[in-house]
Design a protein around this nucleic acid. Structure first.
Length: 579
DNA sequence: ATAGGGTTAG
């Protein structure tokens, strides 16, 4: 954690050649300046003051740490940490807590946790700071574990302790734990008189799908602020209660940009793009989010063409494009696989300086891989300054999609070596998919499946099992695959049989296919039926059983099933996005 | 001189 053993703070460029302004400064003038505004100039002066031998006490140090943390000067924070240790400030919880905050804001959560572990007597603020650090960086489970640990410690939690924990429950859809925390809050008498706690409760119930409880909390709040109203409107929109949401909206005293964005989102979720667009044009202060909401709506409802058109409109209207605008439009381009548009957005990202943001870079990896440009995806991935699990998964799925099982497995092994990074169900989904599609030995595939269940405690989903079934079926282990289907209780799920039938089709195993097809017809899912007929007619044709082929073709004609003509999705012309 | 912790939108 500590890199500097020098007595001087060197991380921050000081202006030693300039006639020192520091001599005229002192902590009495610097501290109020640091307190009033985060300025690099004042920070520089403070660092010079320390290097000139003026010893700060706790308060200036707290300010210094806050400002250097806000600017992301990790190295300076680390050197100040050294200073703090050397001059015996570690036992000062205020100083240590502000050090923790600096590490958090400069994305060094691990350093913050280490410091926390070294603190002799962490107080409730230290705990809250660390819990919220985990929650804010998306590590919800770890945050909740710490929160529960706080309850077992001798430190007494306060209202601040609950808000981050509730936020984590919201994101994880942990309704039962959230409700437990709610009852604890009521017991401690915190519920009334704290707006933020109430807001978190509304949000938690809303995100967990408990609309009624969200409304109850809202109605019982003695004091409501804009966030409370926004949270209840958001809960309505999330739970497809457009009318109720509008009802709250019309009662709201002072709607702000977030409120209007929620209303846009509510319309978008009910596929009412006209009203969404009308709100966007009528609202007082639309921002990037307002536009992004509609853009996301198009992508989510699989209207990629509309999405790219809308993006062009955003650009020509002078809307400030942010990392979300770019990542969403990249997702729509990825489904269209129009390479020139993708490159255009890539250069747009470079120009805006957003290309190394995790969401943008992950979207670029995904876009290039869906356009079949694996090498470009690799370059983006390896040049990312920070990678989260989504980025790793995007790259593994890039290999999987392009049939490179060696690449996928290699990258998976790299991921396993990463500290603080744990493969999740999506990682294994891609890994198992590539194993089932390529010539990966069955025992290797089974090994990953078992690793997922035993080592990482991930419950296999239908999709995971389908990959396993496909892998077995392709190797002629149809009966074993049938056992997997039964064993995991997916016997009534047409998708699993479909996977097996597909595998039989690959192996040209007519005998096994007939058994599986009969099972699928018995389940009677219309969409699956269609697939059965196509696979079976191809199989009969392969075995030159023309009588059966014409019988099946007749059934297909009667049912109006048509065979899609195979074609490539990659497009390479007609640049329609104008930037 | 003396400001370490919390919530809502894509």
């Amino acid at each position: 954690m500590l890199r500097s053993v020098s007595n001087k703070l060197t991380a921050f460029p000081t202006r030693s050649h300039v006639s020192s302004t520091a001599s005229s400064n002192s902590w009495t003038t610097i501290v109020p300046a640091l307190a009033r505004f985060d300025s690099i100039g004042v920070l520089r002066a403070a660092v010079e003051l320390i290097n000139d031998g003026e010893k700060p006490d706790a308060s200036p140090l707290v300010h210094l740490l806050r400002v250097s943390g806000n600017y992301g000067y990790v190295s300076l924070c680390q050197q100040l940490h050294g200073y703090v240790i050397k001059h015996g400030f570690v036992s000062d919880t205020r100083v240590s807590n502000s050090l923790m905050r600096s590490y958090k804001t400069s994305d060094s959560l691990e350093d913050a946790h280490k410091l926390f572990d070294e603190m002799p007597e962490p107080d409730v603020i230290s705990w809250n700071s660390l819990v919220s650090g985990y929650v804010q960086s998306g590590r919800f489970q770890e945050g909740l574990c710490l929160f529960l640990e706080l309850h077992r410690s001798d430190v007494f939690p306060n209202e601040f302790s609950f808000t981050a924990a509730l936020a984590a429950c919201s994101r994880l859809r942990f309704m039962r734990l959230g409700a437990c925390i709610h009852s604890k809050i009521v017991k401690l008498g915190i519920e009334k008189g704290n707006v933020v706690v109430g807001n978190c409760l509304i949000d938690m119930y809303g995100k967990c799908g408990c609309m009624d409880d969200a409304v109850l909390v809202f109605q019982h709040m003695e004091e409501k602020d804009t966030v409370s109203w926004n949270a209840i409107v958001a809960s309505c929109s999330r739970n497809d209660e457009l009318e109720l949401g509008l009802w709250f909206f019309h009662q709201m005293p002072n709607p702000d940009t977030v409120t209007y964005n929620e209303i846009i989102d509510a319309f978008v979720k009910s596929r009412d793009f006209n009203n969404a667009f009308e709100v966007l044009l009528d609202m007082p202060n639309p921002n990037s989010s307002s536009w992004n909401t509609i853009l996301t709506g198009y992508v989510n409802s699989e209207q990629s063409g509309e999405a790219t058109e809308f993006f062009t409109k955003m650009h020509s209207s002078g809307v400030r494009l942010d990392e979300y605008s770019l990542s969403v439009v990249l997702a729509s381009i990825a489904t269209l696989a129009v390479v020139p548009w993708g490159s255009l957005i890539h250069s747009c990202a470079l120009k805006l300086g957003l290309d190394s943001r995790v969401v943008v870079a992950s979207a670029l990896v995904d876009m290039y891989s869906k356009c079949g440009m694996l090498k470009d995806a690799e370059v983006i991935f390896w040049t990312m300054p920070r990678k989260n699990l989504i980025a790793w998964n995007a790259m593994i799925s890039a290999y999987a999609r392009n049939g490179d099982s060696t690449g996928a497995i290699k990258l998976f092994n790299r991921l396993k070596q990463e500290r603080f990074m744990k493969p999740d169900r999506f990682t294994f989904l891609n890994l198992l998919a590539v194993c089932s599609h390529c010539e990966v030995p069955m025992e290797v595939t089974l090994g990953y499946f078992e690793m997922m269940v035993n080592e990482y405690g991930i419950k296999p989903s239908v999709e995971h099992c389908c990959s396993l079934i496909r892998a077995m079926g392709k190797r002629g282990e149809v009966w074993q695959a049938k056992m997997v289907i039964q064993q995991f209780g997916f016997g009534y799920d047409g998708v699993t049989w479909r996977a097996l039938l597909g595998a039989c089709g690959v192996r040209k195993d007519l005998k096994a296919a007939k058994v599986v097809a009969a099972k699928m017809i018995e389940l009677g899912d219309a969409d699956e039926d269609e697939y059965v007929y196509i696979v079976m007619s191809n199989l009969y044709a392969y075995h030159e059983r023309w009588r059966e082929v014409s019988q099946i073709r007749k059934i297909m004609r009667d049912k109006g099933i048509k065979k899609e003509v195979g074609s490539s999705w990659i497009q390479g012309q007609n640049v329609a996005i104008q930037l």
